[in-house]
């Protein structure tokens, strides 16, 4: 399966520089775990940070080196275990506390479920469960919304998105994502401003869903 929808250069640069909110970092890190193209682009942006680091410095106080040497751990390093295969990429699993079966879903109506993940407040991250064939109510965006597909697939007015694909939506996009009929769809979504629902019912529910 090939990933067709990637992160924007802007998001990768922001992630490299460390200026994105935590919820966006989580989507970026999850996509990077599945996409080597974006991993390579990120690494190139990080090289800019490395080059800047070479430019200047502020002298350490005397004794800094000795106290660092005294603190070094001389035990053998822990071996790296490759993450066990699963539906959720490694960074996401540490937020959920396990793989898909550890997600604590809450119903939001119409068969759609969500699990809000604990991140800093400047943006919010949630897992979404959309039953096969079901739709997320038509909505627009006040800020930026990133949606990463983890299982199944969905389609909206712009294209079809499969596992690993990320959709970057902004103020200009109004869409109604519909899950493929073949499988239930699980996505990770992050937003830095509340969504704008077009119909009344979701709008009334919005404060309760915190979406």
């Amino acid at each position: 399966m090939t990933i067709k929808h990637h992160l924007t250069e802007q998001l990768l640069m922001g992630y490299a520089a460390g200026t994105l909110p935590e919820a966006f970092n989580l989507v970026v890190a999850s996509h990077l775990s599945m996409c080597d193209d974006c991993r390579a682009t990120l690494a190139a942006y990080e090289e800019i940070g490395g080059a800047l680091l070479e430019e200047a410095g502020v002298a350490m106080s005397t004794g800094g080196l000795d106290s660092a040497l005294a603190r070094l751990d001389t035990r053998a390093p822990e071996p790296v275990r490759p993450a066990a295969p699963g539906a959720l990429p490694a960074p996401l699993r540490s937020y959920v506390g396990g793989d898909v079966d550890a997600i604590r879903w809450r119903s939001v109506g119409g068969g759609v479920k969500q699990a809000i993940l604990p991140t800093s407040e400047s943006a919010s991250a949630r897992l979404l469960f959309i039953p096969a064939g079901a739709a997320v109510p038509d909505h627009g965006h006040r800020g930026m919304e990133l949606t990463l597909v983890l299982q199944g697939a969905f389609a909206d007015e712009t294209d079809r998105f499969v596992r690993g694909d990320v959709e970057v939506a902004d103020q200009d996009l109004e869409h109604m994502p519909v899950a493929d009929i073949g499988a239930d769809c699980i996505c990770l979504a992050a937003t830095d401003a509340p969504l704008r629902f077009t119909s009344l019912i979701p709008r009334l529910l919005q404060p309760f869903l915190k979406i």
Binding site: N25, A29, L32, R39, A90, T119
Partner: peptide, 12 residues
């Protein structure tokens, strides 16, 4: 910033 920093899976 008192935030966690999610990083991609380690590859070694």
């Amino acid at each position: 910033r008192k935030q966690r920093r999610p990083e991609p899976e380690d590859l070694t």
